[in-house]
Design a protein around this nucleic acid. Structure first.
Lengths: 206, 206
DNA sequence: GTCTATAAATAGATAGAC
DNA sequence: GTCTATCTATTTATAGAC
């Protein structure tokens, strides 16, 4: 039996709270994907969620915590997807599948864009425990797969594993996807294929 | 004889004006590379240039025009570089050289990050004549080189030329470069080689 | 053209009623 | 816990002296 009904009455309110926080976080993801952290206003978030601004601040103490929660949420979803990728697949295919998943989230408009190198948000994230934990839950298995794929000869072994990992994070947020989407000339599947091919196959002919 | 001394007295002031505007635009480039358009404030720009804010507004009528001028400036520099690339090189090498140049500018901290897909800045840029002209002065030759490189079999012909062009723009601003730079583990040349290899060769082994 | 001083709007964040 | 109303700081932009 699932534990959707908790032993205490407290948990019902807790569930509603989590549901609302989920709605908030989802909204923040969309707004950060659209305009980025700096251009997003707390008023917009509140209006889009359909609640008042002070209610937001009961859930999250600051705008930056709001953003950190949103990015942690995306990373947690990614971590869940990573955990479900069948290890029977060859490691390169597993990496391919993860990037495809991330690119789909990007296409759907739910992937916050990366903060600038010296953005104040970066400082907040770099000490945010929940965000960092979610980041590691993705990075650790990916880095293992990268080493596997380099060992079996399917991934370019001249690239440091860390560089490959960073490249995958960068490609998940690839502006190429938005640019192609903006033309209106390609279907979502075509965009995914183009972006993945550009990343794994490279621009040079093979 | 060079025309550094102009026939009219007016042109001397004009030169000083251009020099100051050059300093402003250079500062804006650095700030936009660091923090992006939205997090950059006009006060910061004025302070960094060493002039008062109203003086800024004598040169540029709004913050968005400031940003457009900065991005147009980078594109003009890129256009000048493109015009100097020897056509004796094979087309793929020419594209390679241009991306390397852009990545160097990025590494130096002088390449504004791309605005978000629905950023208000995008709307301004899309109707800014100087910016659009500079953009075309880069895009037109690049697109020709892309078709050449596909025709001679060195560039993946399965990718639409437009997609390759967008990919090059995206890679010029590749966050991978900042991420590698942030580790402190790699020299600038190593970062350039890694970023260029990831773009042209792809992550897969060859 | 450059500055000091300031306007006008908007941002993040909170007080206090219910 | 949620809302109305508000505070404070900051931001873009300008008026007006020199």
């Amino acid at each position: 039996m699932m534990d959707t009904v908790a032993p205490t009455g407290l948990s019902f309110k807790a569930q509603m709270r989590r549901a609302r926080e989920g709605a908030i976080v989802g909204t923040v993801c969309r707004l950060m994907a659209d305009k980025g952290f700096d251009a997003m206003t707390v008023d917009e978030v509140a209006a889009a969620v359909g609640i008042a601004k002070p209610s937001l601040y009961k859930h999250f103490p600051s705008k930056e915590d709001l953003a950190a929660a949103a990015m942690a949420h995306v990373l947690q979803r990614a971590g869940e997807y990573v955990a479900e990728v069948p290890l029977s697949l060859p490691p390169l295919k597993r990496l391919h599948a993860v990037l495809r998943w991330a690119a789909q989230v990007h296409l759907a408009g739910d992937l916050p864009i990366l903060p600038g190198p010296r953005s104040p948000l970066r400082a907040t994230l770099s000490v945010h425990p929940v965000y960092l934990a979610a980041l590691r839950s993705v990075s650790a298995p990916l880095e293992g797969w990268i080493r596997e794929a380099q060992a079996d000869g399917s991934l370019n072994a001249a690239l440091p594993p860390q560089a490959v990992l960073y490249a995958l994070y960068a490609r998940a947020c690839d502006p190429l996807i938005s640019l192609l989407q903006g033309t209106g000339q390609y279907s979502d599947d075509e965009i995914l294929d183009l972006a993945l091919s550009a990343c794994f196959d490279g621009l040079r002919a093979r």
